[in-house]
Computed example of a mutant assay.
Amino acid sequence: MENVDGYPDITEQTMCLCGGNAAMRTSWMENNPGRRFLECSFYRRPDACDYFKWVDPLVQPHYKSIINGLLRNANHKDALVKKLQRNLIYHRIVLAMVVMVVLVYCVL
Protein backbone atom coordinates (compact mmCIF):
# COMPACT_ATOMS: atom_id res chain seq x y z
CA MET A 1 0.00 0.00 0.00
CA GLU A 2 1.24 3.46 -0.93
CA ASN A 3 1.50 6.14 1.71
CA VAL A 4 -0.21 9.43 0.90
CA ASP A 5 2.23 12.37 0.82
CA GLY A 6 4.40 11.12 3.66
CA TYR A 7 1.60 10.27 6.10
CA PRO A 8 2.49 6.70 7.21
CA ASP A 9 -0.94 5.90 8.69
CA ILE A 10 -2.90 7.09 5.60
CA THR A 11 -2.77 4.82 2.56
CA GLU A 12 -4.51 4.88 -0.78
CA GLN A 13 -6.38 1.78 0.38
CA THR A 14 -7.47 3.06 3.80
CA MET A 15 -10.68 1.29 4.69
CA CYS A 16 -13.67 2.98 6.25
CA LEU A 17 -15.84 1.37 8.92
CA CYS A 18 -18.25 -0.22 6.44
CA GLY A 19 -15.43 -2.05 4.64
CA GLY A 20 -15.11 0.14 1.56
CA ASN A 21 -12.15 2.26 0.53
CA ALA A 22 -12.28 5.66 2.19
CA ALA A 23 -12.51 8.56 -0.26
CA MET A 24 -10.05 11.44 0.00
CA ARG A 25 -11.69 14.82 -0.31
CA THR A 26 -10.69 18.46 0.20
CA SER A 27 -12.47 20.80 2.57
CA TRP A 28 -13.31 24.27 1.28
CA MET A 29 -15.10 25.34 4.45
CA GLU A 30 -13.87 28.59 6.00
CA ASN A 31 -12.38 26.83 9.06
CA ASN A 32 -10.37 24.27 7.03
CA PRO A 33 -9.75 25.60 3.51
CA GLY A 34 -7.69 23.28 1.32
CA ARG A 35 -7.35 20.68 4.07
CA ARG A 36 -7.69 17.08 2.88
CA PHE A 37 -9.59 14.38 4.74
CA LEU A 38 -10.75 10.80 4.35
CA GLU A 39 -14.38 9.79 4.72
CA CYS A 40 -16.69 6.92 3.84
CA SER A 41 -16.93 6.67 0.05
CA PHE A 42 -20.70 6.22 0.45
CA TYR A 43 -21.06 9.65 2.07
CA ARG A 44 -24.64 11.03 1.93
CA ARG A 45 -26.07 7.59 1.22
CA PRO A 46 -28.12 5.64 3.76
CA ASP A 47 -25.54 2.82 3.89
CA ALA A 48 -22.62 5.16 4.71
CA CYS A 49 -20.69 4.79 7.94
CA ASP A 50 -19.34 7.67 10.07
CA TYR A 51 -15.68 7.22 9.11
CA PHE A 52 -13.77 10.51 9.02
CA LYS A 53 -10.06 11.29 9.40
CA TRP A 54 -8.04 14.42 8.62
CA VAL A 55 -5.04 13.81 6.34
CA ASP A 56 -3.51 17.30 6.53
CA PRO A 57 -2.57 19.13 9.73
CA LEU A 58 -4.47 22.21 10.89
CA VAL A 59 -4.10 25.24 8.65
CA GLN A 60 -2.32 28.12 10.39
CA PRO A 61 -4.56 31.18 10.90
CA HIS A 62 -2.44 33.39 8.61
CA TYR A 63 -2.62 30.90 5.73
CA LYS A 64 -6.30 30.30 6.42
CA SER A 65 -7.08 34.00 5.95
CA ILE A 66 -5.03 34.12 2.73
CA ILE A 67 -6.75 31.03 1.27
CA ASN A 68 -10.20 32.29 2.26
CA GLY A 69 -9.46 35.69 0.69
CA LEU A 70 -8.38 34.03 -2.55
CA LEU A 71 -11.52 31.88 -2.56
CA ARG A 72 -13.72 34.94 -2.01
CA ASN A 73 -12.00 36.75 -4.90
CA ALA A 74 -12.39 33.72 -7.18
CA ASN A 75 -16.07 33.37 -6.27
CA HIS A 76 -16.60 37.11 -6.85
CA LYS A 77 -14.91 36.86 -10.24
CA ASP A 78 -17.09 33.87 -11.19
CA ALA A 79 -20.22 35.79 -10.18
CA LEU A 80 -19.15 38.78 -12.29
CA VAL A 81 -18.48 36.57 -15.31
CA LYS A 82 -21.92 34.97 -14.99
CA LYS A 83 -23.54 38.40 -14.68
CA LEU A 84 -21.71 39.62 -17.80
CA GLN A 85 -22.79 36.52 -19.71
CA ARG A 86 -26.43 37.09 -18.72
CA ASN A 87 -26.17 40.75 -19.76
CA LEU A 88 -24.66 39.77 -23.10
CA ILE A 89 -27.52 37.37 -23.80
CA TYR A 90 -30.05 40.03 -22.79
CA HIS A 91 -28.43 42.62 -25.08
CA ARG A 92 -28.32 40.17 -27.99
CA ILE A 93 -32.03 39.47 -27.56
CA VAL A 94 -32.85 43.18 -27.44
CA LEU A 95 -30.68 43.82 -30.52
CA ALA A 96 -32.39 40.98 -32.41
CA MET A 97 -35.80 42.41 -31.52
CA VAL A 98 -34.75 45.90 -32.69
CA VAL A 99 -33.46 44.47 -35.98
CA MET A 100 -36.74 42.60 -36.47
CA VAL A 101 -38.79 45.76 -35.84
CA VAL A 102 -36.63 47.74 -38.27
CA LEU A 103 -36.97 45.05 -40.93
CA VAL A 104 -40.74 44.86 -40.49
CA TYR A 105 -40.96 48.66 -40.65
CA CYS A 106 -38.82 48.77 -43.82
CA VAL A 107 -40.90 46.08 -45.52
CA LEU A 108 -44.16 47.85 -44.81
Score class of each variant (00 low, 15 high):
R25W: 08
R25G: 02
R25Y: 03
T26R: 05
T26F: 02
T26Q: 06
S27P: 00
S27K: 00
W28S: 05
W28H: 11
W28L: 01
W28G: 03
M29R: 03
M29H: 04
M29F: 01
N31G: 01
N31I: 00
N32M: 04
N32H: 09
N32Q: 04
N32P: 02
P33L: 04
G34T: 08
G34A: 05
G34I: 05
G34W: 10
R35M: 04
R35Y: 04
R36T: 06
R36H: 00
R36F: 00
R36E: 08
F37P: 00
L38E: 03
L38Y: 04
E39K: 08
E39D: 12
E39N: 10
C40N: 04
C40W: 03
S41F: 01
F42Q: 04
F42K: 06
F42M: 09
Y43E: 07
R44E: 12
R45F: 09
R45M: 09
R45P: 02
P46T: 11
D47F: 11
D47K: 06
D47G: 06
D47M: 09
A48K: 05
A48E: 08
A48T: 08
C49R: 05
C49I: 07
C49P: 02
C49A: 09
D50M: 11
Y51F: 12
F52R: 03
K53Y: 00
K53L: 09
K53F: 03
K53N: 07
K53I: 08
W54S: 04
W54R: 01
V55H: 00
V55M: 00
P57M: 04
P57R: 10
L58A: 05
V59W: 05
V59G: 01
V59A: 02
Q60Y: 04
H62E: 14
H62L: 09
H62F: 05
H62T: 11
Y63T: 08
K64T: 05
K64C: 04
K64W: 10
S65A: 06
S65C: 01
S65I: 00
I66K: 12
I66S: 12
I67A: 06
I67S: 09
N68F: 07
N68T: 07
N68G: 07
G69N: 14
G69S: 13
L70Y: 14
L70G: 14
L71I: 15
L71D: 12
L71Q: 12
R72H: 13
R72L: 13
N73T: 11
N73Y: 13
N73S: 14
N75R: 13
H76S: 11
K77C: 06
K77D: 08
D78I: 13
D78H: 13
A79Q: 13
A79I: 05
A79M: 12
A79L: 10
L80I: 13
L80Q: 15
V81M: 15
V81P: 07
V81N: 14
K83R: 14
K83C: 11
L84S: 15
L84C: 15
Q85I: 12
Q85M: 15
Q85P: 09
Q85C: 14
R86D: 13
N87G: 15
N87D: 15
